[in-house]
Design a protein around this nucleic acid. Structure first.
Lengths: 368, 368
DNA sequence: AATATAAACATGTACGTACAAGTATGTACA
DNA sequence: TGTACATACTTGTACGTACATGTTTATATT
């Protein structure tokens, strides 16, 4: 009578009975389970007890109920579905992100994973919220594009919790360097942004420019590194950059800053600042820069050469086609997905991919 | 006695009371909520009813309980757990889809749901695979942009299975009409595409055009309806359209067809076909059409006026800015998300939204 | 043969009771 | 002072009943 009652409540016993029915395939996906009354008899309990068991199983996703019809098994996380992957990016619909996401989704779907997407709008608190949310969803891996990667990583402890739960992390675009870089559960697919900034600037130098302004994002590592490459290239040509010709913006002022910075550079009163060329953080900024140059009565590339970054769709859509640094975009997504799957399934190899940037030369620069 | 009982069960009323306590900050994170007995008295219900409310809230993550101590609010910690929503679109990274997806994601995240995305590349088999995959995840709702909606719905049985599992369906852009349209578990946010095609064509007629060609997609309902609107507008002006001036393409030949169709129209040998204006299925097609017109040595809008559809980013990026029909894009995503949440949480109301299109007049049309 | 109707059965809501078990607090006793 | 105990409170488990509501099937009626 009481041997069963030593610990476990009756409704939990019924729960595990139902779960075993489903798990062992006795009742398959979508098939009818025993009715409440049948289980009352079988276990000699009240209907309330059976309902408690079924109610929890329904909330947990093991079964679903249809009034008048019965309770049915739901087979989730089965063998033909390998599991879920979380994806957190700063933005979803803007710029090159749709292509990155699409690359990830296509590979993951092909390989039998599902992708849950979330974005942070480049806000650290929202990033924390999204990481917590995804942790609750039983994900196997997390693809993360860091938010404000150049600032202090306030979500480090959260990421360590992610790893503690055996969830692998794959960074894209940038990495949080404070995570131990040898950790085999952390991978990345990033660009060599120093080199990217370098080749963009070097190209301008090689075609004869010397007064080269730069405008960079300062709250993500990509921006900091691109500036580093820019400085390195100038240094190679023996040029010490004028700090007034380097502009730095953040997410918050990115829509105002480029215009202000460029129109200040082109202001007739401080003519010694007027650049021959401008290296831009990315194509979006380059477009605004070109717009401002035009508004100041000058033209691109006749008066000023402009280099973008990322080779986004913006680059070829203007009447002036942008010379820009190629970003792998969709390919980066695919690479990140494939390497994460490798980490999950084989747990081996080096999964730190650094993409070599190349320059795409179009019509926004002119030799002088 | 029964005035409250017209629809909502008592325990749901108590649930929303508790949720409002937490949401409005009357009971903050970690603080004690009223005990079961207090709520019994307050609402004049049995303890069972209160427990049902608290039980569900606990499973959903709104509260947590401690035996002997009470029930506590949980807001900032992990109020997620409301569940997962599946999202299946034809494409992810192209055209207006990133904006639709972004709208859905932002609302869903704000409301505590997670979004799993998947795409079909406009392929019916892939659609079937994605629906099956998502069914195995424990999704609460499915947002679906139909694939090849004008063709026979081969996945109807699958969608009925989705509904049988108590997963609500929200259609966007188009609906599979073979699903019973009064079903309260099916909603939609679509455009009035007949009207869209109508106002685009009517505009051209009003500014004096009579020989108006049309190029439409024939494998989705949007295309069929836009063509219907086009014919209706012509009919209102007493024009019987020349069938040779109407082109129909499918996903498979969309990259070749517009060019062939337009260059054939403009071929000097069949001069009677040469149109004054062309109504295009969408902006993407319009761009290719304009390209082809230019290649034939004619110009837009001087020789031929062109109308697009969707008001995508393509519309304003060319040197000729497209006159086009406005598509809600991000707003459509937000609407779809909000209405799906309504269906899930309140189970009431009409969730069939038909968006009224409006024309955005730019510079790709000229009166004659 | 088609159409109501009733019965049987499924889950949903809601009332009641009883006792178990964890927590906090005040009181009596050592 | 400190410990033990009673008490009152909390949630947890479990029994019972009743009726509502949706689904299916068999039966009776037209």
């Amino acid at each position: 009578m009481f041997e069963q009652n030593l610990k476990e409540p009756k409704y939990k016993l019924i729960k595990s009975y139902i779960k075993s029915l489903i798990r062992e395939g006795n009742v398959k996906d979508g098939q009818l389970l025993p009715s409440e009354y049948e289980l009352m008899e079988k276990f000699n309990v009240s209907r309330h007890t059976v309902r408690q068991a079924f109610g929890e199983l329904a909330k947990e996703g093991w079964v679903y109920k249809k009034r008048g019809k019965g309770t049915f098994a739901r087979y989730f996380n089965t063998c033909d579905k390998k599991g879920m992957i979380g994806l957190i990016t700063t933005y979803i619909s803007d710029y090159i992100f749709p292509h990155i996401i699409s690359g990830i989704e296509s590979v993951m779907t092909e390989e039998g994973y599902s992708v849950i997407i979330a974005n942070t709008n480049n806000n650290k608190e929202k990033e924390a919220y999204q990481i917590k949310s995804l942790m609750e969803q039983n994900i196997k891996g997390l693809i993360l594009e860091p938010t404000k990667s150049a600032e202090k990583n306030v979500n480090l402890n959260l990421l360590e919790e992610v790893l503690a739960r055996d969830i692998k992390i794959m960074f894209i675009n940038a990495i949080y360097t404070d995570l131990k870089s040898e950790n085999p559960n952390v991978g990345c697919v990033i660009m060599d942004d120093v080199k990217g900034g370098f080749i963009a600037t070097e190209y301008l130098l090689k075609i004869g420019h010397r007064k080269i302004a730069g405008i960079f994002k300062r709250d993500d590592i990509q921006g900091v590194k691109r500036e580093e490459g820019y400085r390195k290239a100038l240094g190679n040509f023996g040029i010490i950059p004028d700090e007034n010709m380097i502009g730095r913006f953040t997410t918050e002022n990115k829509r105002i800053f480029p215009k202000e910075f460029v129109s200040n550079l082109l202001d007739k009163r401080n003519n010694e600042l007027k650049p021959d060329a401008i290296v831009c953080y990315n194509d979006e900024i380059a477009v605004w820069v070109i717009q401002t140059i035009k508004e100041c009565g000058l033209s691109v590339p006749q008066d000023i050469s402009v280099v973008g970054y990322d080779d986004s769709s913006l680059a070829t859509v203007l009447d002036i086609e942008l010379t820009t640094v190629k970003h792998p975009k969709k390919q980066m997504g695919e690479l990140a997905a494939r390497h994460l799957i490798e980490m999950l399934e084989n747990n081996s190899g080096n999964h730190r991919i650094i993409y070599e940037p190349e320059l795409v030369i179009r019509s926004s620069c002119k030799a002088r």
